[in-house]
Amino acid sequence: MQKYEKLEKIGEGTYGTVFKAKNRETQEIVALKRVRLDDDDEGVPSSALREICLLKELKHKNIVRLHDVLHSDKKLTLVFEHCDQDLKKYFDSLNGEIDPDIVKSFITQRSNRLSFSHCKHVIGRQQKYPSLALNESGELKLADFGLARAFGIPVRCYSAEVVTLWYRPPDVLFGAKLYNTSIDMWSAGCIFAVLKSVTQILFMGESEDEGQYTFTVFLNHEQSSLGEGEGEGQYKSTSLHLESTVHLSYSKYFSKIRHRRLNRLLICNPALRMSAEDAMTHSYFADLLPSLHNG
């Protein structure tokens, strides 16, 4: 690792540790993500393999750039562009107030990136605001691709244990293994809510059961007409993930984040959820500069 001088530990990724480092020749600041390769292991972990391959493939200003992959005896080192802060730190510095224009800019960048990846056969499955990073010019970048995968047409069954629990769409939360690009859009809705409210998380739960429970209780509150089989213990049997077309209205609970657009992202039925493509043409962005649209 002579080429880079390690400066400090930044955090832990889906696998391996992340360091801030400096290129000794160019003085450029980068982030190094280290993947250990043990002889008695399974070689390159599949999450790392997918992350590397998909980042090599997808180059977009809202996706963190993978500069290089270094291989030495017992490890792989991924060299990423460095971002100054993650969204969580940024929020913490705001004291609960956020400029609506900044929210709009962030959401545009997100939709932009999602539409870009979806057109290129990749779903992220890892949308949560701590994995979003910011650089000094306000560019929002997805920094964690550890759960992303390429999808085929038609879509096959993939793992249901994806997306950080609080951002997992109800269909997947309740066990659907067949999902498509809509999985990212639910999370996008959750993040939108987080942005609007500056950190209010919608569906908290410590475990899958708890997540399902919180969600069911919430839904029953909102839509008492959903009817029979309410309450704890019953939620697993509901087939809500494929048939229900319940629109969630957050007005009663989250007055700060009431927004039409949320209602189109947070739809239980994945088939009816708004796509990244549609999100880009939504009236919410109508007053944005055209340059931002195409960015």
Partner: peptide, 18 residues
């Protein structure tokens, strides 16, 4: 269009991309 697993919205673009 209404079959979510055909990803009809992106199919054309994905194949162009391939």
């Amino acid at each position: 269009e209404n079959d979510p697993f055909a990803v009809a919205e992106y199919a054309e673009e994905i194949f162009q991309y391939y």
